[in-house]
Design a protein around this nucleic acid. Sequence first.
RNA 1: GCCCCCGUAGCUCAGGGGACAGAGCAGGGGACUUCUAAUCCCAAGGCCGCAGGUUCGAAUCCUGCCGGGGGCGCCA
Length: 548
Amino acid sequence: MIRTHLIDALRAALAGCGVEPLPATIELGRPAHAEHGDWSSNVALVCAKAAGRRPRDLAGELAEHITADPPAHVRQVEVAGPGFVNFHLDDGWLHDVLRQVVAGGVDGYACADFGAGMAVNVEFVSANPTGPLHVGGGRWAAYGDTLCNILARCGYVPHREYYLNDRGRQMAAFAESLVARKQGAEPPEDGYHADYIAEWAAEMPDGADALEWGYARAHRDVADSVARLGVRFDTWASERALVQSGAVAAVLATLEASGAAYRADGATWLRSADGGDDKDRVLVRSDGEPTYLLPDIAYHADKLARGFELMIDVWGADHHGYEERLAAGVCALGNRREQLEIVLGQLVTVMRGGAEAKISKRAGNLVLLDDLVDLVGPDAARMTFLLQSLRSRQTIDLDVVAAQSMENPVFYVQYAHARICSLAATAAERGIARPPLDEVSLELLGDPRELEVLRTLHALGDVVADAARERAPHKLTSWVRELAGAFHGFYHDCPVLRSDIDPPLAVARLWLAEAARIGLVIALDLLGVSAPERMESLSPDDTEEAAE
RNA sequence: GCCCCCGUAGCUCAGGGGACAGAGCAGGGGACUUCUAAUCCCAAGGCCGCAGGUUCGAAUCCUGCCGGGGGCGCCA
């Protein structure tokens, strides 16, 4: 809105100054420092060379043009620094933001449509169905689910999928380990030695097929664990079903027929080196068994066959080397490289008792996602995973997390929401209703705290869009913490229902709080964190007890 | 040896071409006759790993080093 108007004004000014060709995009940003105005453009710096003028001179001409016929809310246009054009606006543009937030509401504000209905398959977690989910799996669960939420808000149609590697060597080793424990024996050397195997073996009915029973047990366990984080998969895709349907064999035949696969040394190879990989890779071993690669290619072909235009796979960084060979296989089937996008996340390191707990299900010493959720609750657990970029490694020290769970940023944000609800409830008790927005004197909102809330709310649309484009949900986490901070500051400095506050100002502030509530709910919903109406888990008494 | 990620305040991390680099936590000092102090405010804390390069402008992009993590199988 405001941004488009300013950019249009800049474009018109550039044309008026005889600059051509006009730049394809004109950047407009919010300066870090208040004295640089509300909005700022570097367009004079960017265009100066092509326009044959000094940046500050060009900026000055632009400022003159715009000042002659300023867009709505523009109070002053000035040149600053090396040649920035800075816009100083009146507060009205922020009052417009309040109106936009309220008009859009939880369902309509900060939505985008650039996804254009594209069907996107997002595959995440996909841990082998041979045991409960490790803490690290929670990172992928929280990330993938939130990414889907954000994509949906931008017009994509996301589909949450979990790929079950439900056949092959790992499943066999898992079943053998269950059988061994059931008989009171040690699992095989390369089997699963973690404690849960013994527990599950004890649950397993006599005469049960260990592989089938264990598979179902693990599948259910994983589904329950992610459900506690609010994650529900649309599809649990089965590798075994893919093999049994003949899809894997069909893909192999297609690859061989097209010459993308060839036989050598008794094995069947994919010409992945042609597709950007370091070297060719084995599809079928010389003993006739397929490697993981072949079913994976078939699986991704299957996703496309199901109508998805884009596949986003969320992988741990330890699978990094696998990306190019899979892409080579997918492309060898005639698909475009852009249809497969791999998001690599750095692994979670789990600490317990001062030592690193291993991730391997086989080695034991497992720290489960359920353990973390038991310890801090689903909201804090999910927020913890969403605090950081996937690019940086995350260390979760269970001892620290437990000790500091009350300091988790999630409560800071939830408290802001609870305060707004409490404010609304008190207003209702006192019979103070919010009149329709167009009858409210929003121009009374001019306190820096009030304006900061509105400025932050304005940014939400950009934050959501950026988070979707960059596959970076943590940007939303950062934003919602900012909004909560802005609201807490407002709440502290700007009384609403106090007797010395004039009714017109009180209702304007009530509407401001409502707008903040809408922003908080949008972001918390996207993050998959609850927005409670009151905070009950910690009373002041508990604080004192906790301090003892 | 090659490939990917990271290195920013004491700690955990944002920022990933734009102006004087931010937040939380820890530590120091202050604010509750209240709409919930799970809050707010002030002060302090930085060769943005190092060295070059590109640019009007580099924490940000490029190259090379150093340090940490991960990966380079007819394993999964």
